[in-house]
Design a protein around this nucleic acid. Sequence first.
DNA 1: CGCGCGGTTGATCAACCTCAACCCGCGTGG
DNA 2: CCACGCGGGTTGAGGTTGATCAACCGCGCG
Lengths: 233, 233
Amino acid sequence: MCIAGGMIQEIHGAGSRAAGAMAPASPGHEVSAREHLFFEGDVRDRIYIVESGWVKLYRTLIDGQRQVVGFANSGSVLGIESDMLHLNSCEAITDVVVRSIPASRLNGICKNDPALAEQILRQIGRQLGAAQAQLATIGAQSAEQKLATFLLSIAHLCEVSLDQEFDLPMRRGDMAEFLGLRLETVSRKMTEFQRRGWIKLTSLYHCRLLQRHVLEELAQGGEADSAQMLRTA
Amino acid sequence: MCIAGGMIQEIHGAGSRAAGAMAPASPGHEVSAREHLFFEGDVRDRIYIVESGWVKLYRTLIDGQRQVVGFANSGSVLGIESDMLHLNSCEAITDVVVRSIPASRLNGICKNDPALAEQILRQIGRQLGAAQAQLATIGAQSAEQKLATFLLSIAHLCEVSLDQEFDLPMRRGDMAEFLGLRLETVSRKMTEFQRRGWIKLTSLYHCRLLQRHVLEELAQGGEADSAQMLRTA
DNA sequence: CGCGCGGTTGATCAACCTCAACCCGCGTGG
DNA sequence: CCACGCGGGTTGAGGTTGATCAACCGCGCG
């Protein structure tokens, strides 16, 4: 999952309607920020498609440590990684509209609704790729690199064409749990990025990238010291 | 992906044969240890199913850092996370037998071969779940916990019923790159586990769990100090 | 014999964590 | 109106974990 931009715009469109007498996809359903769509361990009776807003997916370890395994926004499919029970908890971080599909419809879906099935297959493949990318980030990068990678991903997801402002809808603690850091570390690095003129936080949840190339350099393993800043500028 | 135990035993069996004039799955193909099945960036013209042996999947960051995103053995499907190009490199860590399927067969697979498609869907869902679990391990656990989790996963994958010996086919460096540690750290912790009587390394690549419950405690976030060892024994 | 590869061990160091104080904006209730 | 508490964030001081760098071992092999 990770930062999984969606592809499925019309998962309940003509193709799937053709399936006939199956349980239909629900109409858009509102969920407000801080509410959960489901918890780890719940029976997975439905899968969800995000229509608008942001959710986070996370797991809780026995000792209370949490790991956010992904943020998802419009177009993402939630719950396909699970079988009988949900493996992740899913909490809305903004107000959200979701559509859901009964899990029963997944049985024999390839026969009954090949168009939908193929979309789901592509979407889950994308999520797997994103999860693996996130593994690389968490496992092999420093705190600074992680944050740079993260900001670029979010900016990309928000489809920021050039360097205008974009939403950073999650709290510092969510970012930290996603990146495998402490929120203090995230906070420090954010202010550091700002002090160096790489980003500008217009509010706590609103950000602009001033030096995208420096962040890109960093994210890919560059040094990003001041000398490099000049070179690459 | 991650430590992805397989489910698909007969991916080329009767169900898929029925597809008729499609390009057939290749017969078993031998690959020896250290050879690559494919590299990151290669065009993805085939997907693979592991029949025997072990492979690792990894990504290389620009600065040469590598992250192993998964180990896979018999039954795992490789390459579905990618679209046109492979996102991971795949290297055999033991001698391996793989079967492959032309990627072209994935187009319209749900219509043409629903049985195969549904198996792949389940398998990739499992891999996504495993990748998320690995995210939690790498992101939220200490070196000791990571190693404990890892040993238990491998032992589980090798289907060790009780506490007999099992294969640990990868090198220390591979474990390190999987767990987001340095190989020196892995080495130290391994000898430490042994010194504490939790495991026994009969050879570098052969291991026995002597105190599985202690490792389980550790993996789940317990303290595993000597007091606890006695309590849980 | 010498070399290279994989692994182990030791000493040092820094990145990040931990704990704690503090700030700010906001809603509530006296 | 102000006091208060609370949630979320920032900042600081000091400690630990795991990285780094380097030496060394054992083994297989040309």
